[in-house]
């Protein structure tokens, strides 16, 4: 397998009125071609921001630390994403090699332009298709994501669609350019599960058809279990656990991942109380020193949790966890 995108020591802060906010800290991972990676974690943990970094697409107040490096292995050779500056250079990644399905479907469609017109413009920008061809590709994609009456929906505005149809239209738009990397940020939250299953199947088909790599951001662990090969778990800007999907779901090691899985409502037992991970994620302005999870962890092993940032412990070749509990095991 060959790497598709490599993220090395990504650290990202935002300048705000209240000071510098650290949104991502020292995150490294590699996605292989044809691999589906699930990215899960508490809201505010930096999943969307990490994903947007891959397209160099964060807000203007974003500051990347000098050691941060993102390398995209495009068909034309490696691209150092964070060094891209001009719109022309950026076009290569944005909507070209990489497509992103954004978390806010409303925000990704301009309100005064029809869905179809936007899809066609996107295709014209990133391919040498004719207008007519772009239109038929767009309608075909709308149809493939399960939008009935696609030809008519093509001429509608985003506000005229239900939440789920908007989300599917966005998925269709992202897939129509046939990207090498698809970033899907909570793409199925507004869909009923039958349509969700259909969209997931479509994505899997595209992986096997075109060897596309996918980063799938979702809080639905069932969806992760059914789609991803590997899972990365983030908490407060840090990657706390990484491993094959079976391992992480069946045998979670980090106390946060364990809490996440325990909090799932189970269909087998409707009387079981819902058990959240106690406490709130700290404000990004008040990042704890030491382990970022120490304010909520029920398994604190000692002073080191408060003082030392846990390093990544490799449990085996593919599964690693950043927690002091496992330090001795690794040594």
């Amino acid at each position: 397998m060959t790497p598709l995108i490599e993220v090395e020591n990504l650290t990202l802060q935002f300048r705000t009125d209240e000071g510098l906010i650290t949104a991502v800290e020292d995150v490294s991972f590699t996605l292989m071609k044809g691999e589906v990676m699930g990215l899960v974690g508490e809201s505010g943990s930096g999943k969307s921001v990490t994903a947007k970094s891959l397209m160099h697409l964060n807000a203007r107040n974003a500051v990347y630390s000098p050691g941060s490096r993102i390398t995209l292995h495009a068909d034309t050779g490696p691209v150092d994403v964070l060094s891209l500056r001009t719109p022309r250079e950026l076009n290569v990644v944005r909507g070209g090699a990489i497509s992103m399905i954004f978390q806010e479907p409303m925000a990704s469609f301009a309100p005064a332009i029809t869905i179809g017109k936007q899809m066609v413009e996107q295709l014209l920008l990133h391919s040498d298709m004719s207008k007519g061809a772009a239109k038929s590709v767009s309608i075909e994609m709308l149809d493939r994501v399960g939008i009935s009456d696609a030809a008519r929906r093509f001429d509608q505005y985003a506000f005229e669609l239900s939440g789920g149809m908007r989300q599917r239209a966005m998925i269709a738009m992202a897939l129509s350019t046939n990207p090498t990397l698809l970033i899907a940020d909570e793409p199925t939250t507004a869909l009923d599960v039958t349509i969700q299953a259909q969209v997931i199947d479509l994505m899997k088909d595209l992986v096997s058809e075109f060897g596309m790599g996918i980063i799938f951001i979702t809080h639905d662990l069932g969806v992760v279990a059914q789609t991803a090969d590997r899972v990365n778990v983030m908490y407060l800007g840090r990657l706390v656990e990484e491993g094959p999907v079976r391992e992480v779901i069946r045998n979670p090691r980090h106390p946060y991942t364990q809490g996440l899985i325990a909090a799932l409502p189970k269909l087998e037992d409707l009387d079981a109380p819902l058990t959240p991970v106690p406490g709130d994620i700290p404000s990004p302005l008040e990042r704890p020193s030491g382990c970022v999870f120490n304010t909520r962890c029920s398994q604190v092993v000692g002073e080191e949790c408060m003082a030392l940032v846990p390093t990544n412990c490799r449990l085996d070749e593919t599964h690693s966890v950043a927690c002091h509990i496992y330090r001795e095991a690794a040594e």
């Binding site: 009935s148 599960v193 039958t194 299953a197 069932g222 969806v223 279990a225 079976r246």
Partner: peptide, 30 residues
């Protein structure tokens, strides 16, 4: 029933696949 069968299972090896609904999804205007 189809809806319930499509709830994604937490078990990655669960082959209990969603009951596929073939056929046209009708349009609310037609």
């Amino acid at each position: 029933k189809a809806l319930f069968s499509a709830i994604p299972s937490l078990d990655p090896d669960d082959d209990r696949t969603a009951q596929k609904l073939a056929g046209e999804i009708p349009s609310p205007t037609d």
